[in-house]
Amino acid sequence: MIQSDADILWNRKLGPMYFHLGLSLRGFEQAVPGQFITLRAQRQQSPLLRRPFSIHRLIQADNRVQGIEILYRTAGDCTRYLSTLAPGEKVNILGPLGNGFSLPDSGRIFLVAGGIGVAPMVFLAETLRQKSHPSEITIFLGGRTQTDLLCQKAFLDLGLRLELSTDDGSTGHQGLVTDLLKKHLTETKAHGIYACGPMPMLAAVAGLARSHAVPCQVSIETIMACGMGVCLGCALDDQVITDKYRHVCIDGPVFDAATLKFDN
């Protein structure tokens, strides 16, 4: 874990509410997919706290990790301010934090992302791609409308199979991303599912994984203050997880879906 100022290399708008941030930063050689950072951009005292973001990708050059990429959605004062920053300005980064995804040895892998939940999936897909044949990895992207389906080019460039769904049917299947997952799980034996997105989606993915007996890991987002296991503010209770008061920052953010509670 390091704390460091990082130069903004780029801060590009990807759609109505989405931005792609590139940061020049050392100290992330050991970072793994699923880990996160906390970021503080503002000098003033409100908003007060750092904000957690998944590591979207590592920036590599000359066989070294030269920085990290963040994918974010403008949701509040912090991210709106972040979206106004230009290349050359600095943000303060703490990371890498938390536990990443455990990677499988082999077999067919399904990645499931809802909206901005796609953020950790590109780093994960790139890492999986080093061991697995691209035809064994399928990414399911879901969102409200077509502009919520991010990173399609990155996944296609890796040669992965892409399955798309939108609530309004503007792209791909009209309905839930878990409809597509259910269909594929019925047709094909999968060896691992990795999911990130809203809690109802994660609960549905966890339920499907259990009924098809497929190991599944989910990345969970909560409000947090410190990101490093000292404030204990990011606790999950027994409505979410079987073993109550796990902390998203140090016990997660990636959890075994078998420990998640789900309705269906």
Partner: peptide, 23 residues
């Protein structure tokens, strides 16, 4: 001590409220 049920923290103007419950 296990602490309190979540949500345990919320950000407010120039501050934060916590009810960790001394976990």
């Amino acid at each position: 001590a296990p602490g309190n049920k979540p949500p345990r923290i919320v950000e407010t103007a120039c501050g934060m409220l916590n009810a960790i419950g001394l976990e």
